[in-house]
Structures are given as C-alpha cells and as structure tokens.
Design a binder for these strands. Structure first.
Lengths: 221, 221
DNA sequence: ATCGCCATGTTAGCGTCGCTAACTTGTCTT
DNA sequence: AAGACAAGTTAGCGACGCTAACATGGCGAT
C-alpha cells in the first residue's frame, strides 16, 4: 500500500535530476508529481475508510511529504475531495454509457443496462459513490461538480427520450420518467451499499429489483 | 440557547430537592439530567450542521458542562450518536405507522401513504435520516440500531402482506415487493434531501414520483 | 442527624487534525 | 550565471476526541 514512502535522508544524490521529471519518484527535495499522487492516495484512503474519515495527514504520509505540502496544490481538504469527486463522476458516466452501448438506443434493455451499471458502479466503488451523492455542501455546490453530475444525468435523459419516441410519445418531456428511473436505481444502490438491505434481506439480489421495478415503471408510460 | 447554564453559587436551597429530580435545571455541581440534555443538544446540532460535523465539544457547550462530562454517560461519540439514531428510528416508525392508519390495511392508498410519510420524514429531518441510513459502521452494526431498523421495516412488510392477500396472493413472500417499494421511496428521499434532484430538476415534486412509480410497481404483482 | 460512598461533575493534558506563516530548495527563464 | 518563483520544509495555532486524576455533593446505612 504505502510503498511510495521513502526516507528523504540527506539530499546527497542530486545527480539523477534528468531521469524522472513528472513521472513517478521524487527527485530529491521536490516530489515532482504531488498533485496526482495526492489524488490517488485520497482515492485509496477513501475507498478504505470512507470519505468522512479520510484525513489530509494520511494522504501526506502515503505520498511521503509533509502535512503542509498539499496546500501548494489544493486550497483545502474539500478541494482535494472535489478532484476525487470529479474523477468519480467521469467513471460513472463511462460505466453507464458503455453498458447501454451494445443495445438499441431507446430500448428497454438499454435503459435497464444503464441502471444496472449505475448499481454496479456503486457496489464496486461504494466510497466514491457516497462522496458523489452524500451530503457535503462545500463540494456539491462547486460548479465543476454540479456540471459533472448534470452530464451523467444527460446520459439517462437521452435514453428516455429515445424510449418515448420509439413508443409514440415523441416530443413528450422525458424528465418525469427519467426521475422515476433514477430514483429507483439510486435507492437500490444506496440500500445495497449502506448495509440495510443485507440486514433486512440477506442474500437478496439488488439487480432483480431494478429488473422488476424498472420494467414496471417503463411499462406504465 | 444555552439557558441551562447558571452559577452554582451557594447551595443554600437544598429544600427543593424533591421538586426537580431528573427534570430540568442543574442543581449546583451536578447537572441532574445530562444524558437527556446531551441527546437533545446532539439532535439540534446534527439538524443544523449534519451528523459528520457534529462535535462533542459543541454538545457540551450547549449543555453547559465541561468537555469531559459526556463520558460519564456515553462511552464515546458514537454511543451518543447511537442514542440519537435510536430516537430517529422511533420517529420514522411513528410517522409511517400513523400515516397509513386512516386507510384500509393492505390498500394501495395505505402503502402509498406510508411511502410518502417516509419521504416526509426525510425532508423534515434530513440530518436524522442521513444518520440512520448513511455510512457509519460503528453505529449501524450495534444490535439496538439493527433491531430498530428491522422494526421499521416490519411496518412495510405487514402492509405488503395484506396487500398481496387482498389481491389473491395470500401466502406469497412479501419480501420482494416490499424491497421494490422501499428502494423506490428510499431513492426518492435520498435524491430529494441530498440535493441532486433540485439541481437536475428544480421545482420537481418528489411525492409525484412515489405516486406514479409506486402504483406501477404495485400494479405489476 | 451524620457520615462516608460513589455517581457525576471538574481541570489538565495527550495525540491528531486542518491549516497558516515563514523559511529553504532547486528548476527554469533570461 | 543569476535570480525569480514554484514547490517543498519546519514550527505552531486552535479545535477535537478522549483519558487520568481530582472535587463535589446526593444518598443510603448507621
């Protein structure tokens, strides 16, 4: 895990200055790629212990720098979390987008596949998911994050629009149906990753809920 | 706010010892009702700033005691949160239970009313809701909390059982349908309180989602 | 009545955290 | 070669969770 750490010791070897520039190891006094290293450390730590118990000091130890170093690259803790959050939204958009790609645009299967991919992302990256959708006004209100979230939703909206058009509801506002589907999938994801579903119904298959409820909601247009 | 504080002064009046035993004001050195006061302070502070940024020190200031006092009544911060969480579950059970009471047991209306009450509780007590369902393994794994959550779910399970029986599905396992409904309502509640729904679709009415999707899911038995 | 026990308060302090100030290093431009 | 500036460092502040050791005073036993 923390194999990045290394003793600074005496900066006796300043000869290797031309070898690594912005790539990996630090070259003496300067780290060389601290911003990236901090984001990756934060992602790993958040995945391990959740977004709330993530600490700057831990990220610094992982990156092998002092606790003051991050503030050259991020205004504060929330700015670092914002960067992690942005990457998470990109990951979600990619997951849902590529999941529905094999299916016909606007088909029931495409929409359900997107929903299952949303659930899959949450199950595989519960900490990231919580960071994206949990309560953190300082982060969620930042324009970049808002826009990233909006972009993700566009994905679904597009599918719903095509679905309605294919069912003879062209021109209809896709928003209500999209919100119904989003709510369903988001609820399943939250219950699945935060634990209560396993407590109430151990061994239950969350995908089955999306399958059944999704079809019911789609059928009711 | 902190009107509980008062100078101990001389304990000249020990005559009123039988009047206020565990009720309100402190009587000299001892607070008299610190456990309750801390829970109430925690509830207020959590409601203001969320469960994560709640601090013991703040609760102590509200109660007018030193920062070491709470540890006579709660093992640690999480134990205090557990107490708040328990009360929250009781509140949710009461809200959903009384909401469906006016309707015929097992009717579609009763189930929808319960779901709307669940949503209403989340909207009125977003911080409590997050505390109950957010990620906090230290709290959620405690037996008391698990049981309180299970009790809440029994409420829904009961309604679904009656619904199925009234529709000629007596003896059928109510769990799958209950999970579908719970997921839907939980998703709407989460999206509504954590913000993204307002960003994506400002002015949207969350109850309408429960109404439409709930009926669709129920109709698909 | 009084006396002592011990529940419930207090102060003092440890280690950690987020963050800032002031200093140092070394890279890159000129 | 010089020196400006980016990107590290150490030192330190205030707040936090929590503990240890001490103080108080309500209560039951005598």
């Amino acid at each position: 895990m923390a194999e990045l750490q290394q003793e600074a010791g005496k900066p006796s070897e300043k000869a290797k200055k031309e070898t690594a520039k912005k790539e990996s190891g630090r070259r003496g006094y300067h780290h060389g790629n601290l911003r990236e290293a901090l984001i990756e450390a934060a992602e790993a730590l958040i995945a391990e212990r959740g977004p709330d118990s993530f600490t700057m000091a831990d990220a610094c130890r992982h990156a092998g720098v002092s606790t003051a170093a991050p503030y050259r690259h991020f205004e504060d803790r929330n700015a670092l979390l914002e960067a992690v959050c942005m990457r998470a939204f990109e990951g979600l958009a990619e997951a849902t987008g590529s999941a529905k790609a094999p299916f016909e645009e606007g088909s029931e299967e495409a929409i359900l596949a997107g929903g299952k991919a949303y659930l899959g992302f949450a199950l595989e990256n519960p900490a990231r998911f919580r960071l994206m959708f949990g309560r953190n006004p300082d982060i969620k209100s930042r324009p970049n994050v808002e826009m990233a979230g909006r972009l993700c939703f566009q994905n679904l909206l597009q599918s719903v629009l095509a679905y309605l058009a294919a069912r003879g509801h062209a021109g209809e506002d896709p928003m209500p149906l999209a919100l119904r589907l989003w709510s369903l999938v988001h609820g399943v994801a939250n219950l699945a990753i935060d634990g209560p579903m396993d407590i109430i119904a151990p061994g239950n298959n969350p995908e089955a809920i999306i399958e059944a409820s999704g079809r019911a909601i789609l059928a009711a247009v």
